[in-house]
């Protein structure tokens, strides 16, 4: 029997497959289609202190092997997530869930995380530092080691559950940011968030997306994600959750060999709502093909070519 279970920051997962934040709602849309308890866990929609409508539409642009989104963190705000969404989520999902949190100031992050940390079903806090810092001239927290570390410290100070910092790939040196988060007390790192992208409608000579730019994701970004997961996983001691363009069981194994302890799947869920279930079903067969008995044993196991 192939062993699929992994341990993420002290919590056992039946398998490493995790739908990524923003592509799985609060789970119940997908629970209509299949039993979502087959998942390792899932990361719910990015939650902020206050309710947000997000950006104007159009918010979506298609690309070759991917898509751009500029949803802009639409969510009902942390209080309503706790009062309305989590009870519904609990009806269909019976494992610890990953709470994805966004903010526009260090205080926002701490406020939202502190509240979600008290929710019984929340297993991990996944802190998305790709958001612009309104007090820092709009620069994303995730683009500076100091700002990312400050968010990490603030969240760690008010929470008890494992804190996973989710990094943006839109930086020159992702390793320095990951290390700063680790030093500030992060329990794990997840990456990558979407890559900044843009499309232009030739007929209208306008950006396809009302917000001009948005986050590029889907299969096209997979090689960039594997590279960044590899770099970060080999530079920090805390577990790494890999994501970006994953759409098959082979992709999951590749991410794990690069260094991921668990793997998130984003845009693929939007195109094939059964993507995560299919990947989980395919994993044992693919493991057998590559002579893998226990997924835990391949984490970070990529062997480099010898230097000539």
């Amino acid at each position: 029997m192939e062993q699929l279970n992994v341990n993420l920051c002290g919590i056992e997962l039946d398998n490493p497959v995790i739908p990524a934040s923003g592509t799985f709602g609060y789970g119940y849309e997908f629970a209509e289609l299949y039993d979502v308890n087959c998942l390792g866990t899932f990361s719910f929609k990015g939650t902020t202190k206050d309710a947000r409508f997000g950006n104007p539409t159009p918010r979506i642009a298609e690309c070759t092997a991917g898509m751009i989104n500029a949803v802009g963190l639409q969510n009902p705000g942390v209080d309503r997530v706790i009062s309305h969404e989590l009870p519904k989520l609990k009806q269909c999902f019976h494992k610890p869930v990953m709470a994805n949190v966004s903010g526009f100031s260090v205080e926002d992050y701490a406020y939202t995380c502190e509240k979600l940390d008290k929710e019984e079903q929340v297993g991990w806090l996944e802190v998305n530092v790709s958001c612009p810092n309104v007090h820092g001239g709009g620069m994303s927290f995730g683009t500076s080691p100091e700002a990312a570390a400050e968010v990490t410290r603030a969240v760690k100070a008010v929470t008890t559950k494992p804190v996973i910092i989710k990094l943006s790939p839109n930086v020159t040196d992702i390793v320095s940011i990951a290390k700063a988060c680790e030093a500030a007390g992060a329990d794990g790192i997840s990456l990558i968030n979407t890559m900044l992208g843009m499309r232009i409608d030739l007929n209208r000579r306008r950006p396809v997306i009302a917000n001009t730019m948005g986050g590029f994701s889907g299969s096209a970004i997979f090689p960039v994600a594997v590279r960044m997961v590899y770099q970060v996983a080999h530079a920090v001691k805390i577990p790494v959750v890999g994501m970006g363009g994953v759409s098959s069981a082979e992709d999951v194994i590749e991410m794990m060999m690069a260094g991921a302890t668990a793997v998130e799947v984003g845009a693929a869920n939007l195109v094939n709502p059964y993507a995560c279930r299919d990947i989980i079903n395919d994993l044992p067969g693919v493991m057998e093909k590559y002579r893998i008995n226990n997924l835990k044993e391949i984490i970070g196991g990529v062997q480099l070519w010898e230097k000539m």
């Binding site: 409508f53 949803v71 195109v271």
Partner: peptide, 22 residues
Amino acid sequence: EERMGCGFGACMGCSCKTLTGY
């Protein structure tokens, strides 16, 4: 009509404001 990511309510790609909420 709106440009859609998923078409089944998961991505918030197609939201609009109405008098009865988002």
